[in-house]
Design a protein around this nucleic acid. Structure first.
Length: 443
RNA sequence: GUGCCUUUAGCUCAAUCGGCAGAGCGCCGGUCUGUGGAACCGGAGGUCACGGGUUCGAGCCCCGUUAGGCACCCCA
């Protein structure tokens, strides 16, 4: 018989139990934080009409998976979770309470060239607020993002904050022609990555006036206490349309962040931050870690134009997106969430002559709410069976052979320490719990 | 999508000039009849990623493909 060749698409991966245990644990943490901040769950289909998905992606549309379905409809796999949100808001206006705060943890698909921390199928954890133009909404989005990253235990992350309209004002103030502004944003966004000398060189080569290039670098490179930097810019840019509003909005945002008790070492003003250029309209945020180099682990911002593309009228919205895979890269590198490779707490081996007794004990333990993996290999030696338990990192074994069964007792063995206690059947649950508690207190 | 690098046992990696396919760890078995991990002894496991080409002869050279990585692009 010729076997089929098992193969998997580039950029797609299997998640074996060990990885799934970690992934599910992280998603549980994120969900918990989202709900603590008052966001509610939402899910949408993986496939949408191409027309629905297309609106905002801009030049990224070429990265979108798209095809014809059996009914010849032009469809695509969702590229992010934000466009489906906008569609949901437009379709269910009457059923939703506005402002609408939802979270969405689900896979998205992009046909990118895979690299470390970059896949073609990956999970995003989004939290968005639709229907509020207030900077308070942006502050809450930043707060939930920082809270989620902290809850996972990322050791050193900062979120950089900027304002799309402020960036536009800075470029205009520097004398960058509007037609070249987008190109300039892209270049200065690399400031923290390649340094001001390299950025200056790229700007000079991009055809903008030399004076503008130098002035942009000066403006965008300012650092210091956000309040001071913003106050300085407010004066300097008073002539630039939109600049005052942008500065005021950012100042307001920083005030709210302080009052929300977001640790101030977790965020910073970065006037060079650009981010996705196609749809952000207000404050923008980006979370990065120094190690490992996996790009940004989360992004956020205000996008007042997107929802309106489905409604024909403007609907303010702001939200954040956390990249599960990239965060997992960090978590694994620093072993931030130690996990066992089994979900079971207890292992029950089987003896050929005492299978029924082991089964009965298994039932009792499960009835008490314990997670029990009962051996299905009674023909193997007990040594082999315990070896299996050891490989799966199960910490406790409950051993019942013929003599124990006859005496109405069982041996409860701590597989980490080798300590074994013999106890009557009616005490077995207590004995197991006692071992488990010792383990949790980290002895 | 563009450029460059990589692909040999389950894993990490060797293999001189083109000349018999190797190690460590892991796995399996035994020492050890009902109590794992240690030690010792033994064993299995390979289409050298796949498909072509050059050559007396290819893991090694050439072309194509697959997958992974790095840089760009973009982004989580």
């Amino acid at each position: 018989m010729k076997a089929r060749k098992p193969q998997i698409l580039k950029g797609f991966r299997d998640h074996l139990p060990r990885q799934m245990i970690l992934r599910q644990r992280m998603m549980a943490i994120v969900r918990e934080v989202f709900e603590r901040h008052g966001f509610e769950p939402l899910d949408t289909p993986a496939i949408e009409y191409l027309e629905v998905l297309s609106g905002k992606a801009g030049e990224n549309e070429k990265l979108m998976y798209h095809f014809s379905d059996q009914g010849d409809r032009a469809v695509g796999l969702r590229y992010d979770l934000t466009v489906p949100l906008a569609r949901v808001v437009a379709m269910h206006q009457n059923e939703l309470v506005l402002p609408f705060k939802r979270y969405h943890i689900a896979p998205v698909w992009r046909s990118e060239k895979p690299q470390r921390g970059r896949f073609r199928e990956f999970w995003q954890c989004d939290a968005d607020i639709v229907g509020s133009p207030s900077m308070l909404a942006d502050a809450q989005v930043a707060a939930v993002m920082i809270d989620a990253l902290s809850a996972i235990g990322l050791p050193s992350f900062t979120i950089r904050i900027n304002h799309r309209k402020l960036l536009e004002s800075l470029a205009r103030a520097a004398g960058v022609p509007d037609a070249q502004a987008v190109g300039v944003y892209r270049v200065i966004d690399k400031l923290d990555k390649i340094g001001s000398a390299a950025v200056g060189a790229e700007l000079d080569g991009s055809g903008i006036p030399a004076s503008a290039s130098a002035r942009v670098l000066d403006l965008v490179g300012r650092t210091g206490e956000p309040g001071d930097v913003l106050a300085g810019l407010r004066e300097e840019l008073v002539e630039i349309p939109g600049a005052t509003l942008a500065v005021d909005e950012l100042s307001e945002l920083f005030r709210y962040l302080r009052e929300l008790q977001v640790p101030s070492d977790r965020y910073t003003l970065d006037l060079a931050l650009a981010r996705g250029l196609d749809y952000y309209t207000g404050p923008v945020f980006e979370a990065t870690v120094e190690e490992p180099q996996v790009g940004s682990v989360a992004g956020a911002g205000r996008y007042d134009g997107l929802v309106g593309t489905f409604l024909g009228r403007s609907v303010p919205a702001t939200g954040m997106s956390l990249g599960l895979e990239r965060i997992i890269e960090v978590v694994e590198q620093f072993n931030l969430l130690p996990i066992r490779s089994s979900v079971a707490d207890v292992f029950v081996p089987a003896f050929p002559d005492a299978i029924e007794a082991a089964a009965r004990i298994t039932g009792v333990l499960r009835g008490a709410g314990l997670r029990v993996d009962q051996s299905v290999q009674p023909q193997r030696s007990v040594g082999d069976q315990l070896k299996y338990a050891g490989r799966k990192e199960i910490s406790i074994a409950v051993i019942v052979g013929t003599s124990e069964a006859a005496a109405g007792v069982c041996n409860v063995k701590n597989l980490c320490t080798g300590v074994q206690e013999t106890c009557p059947w009616e005490r077995v649950v207590d004995q197991v719990r006692s071992f488990l508690e010792h383990e949790e207190t980290g002895a």
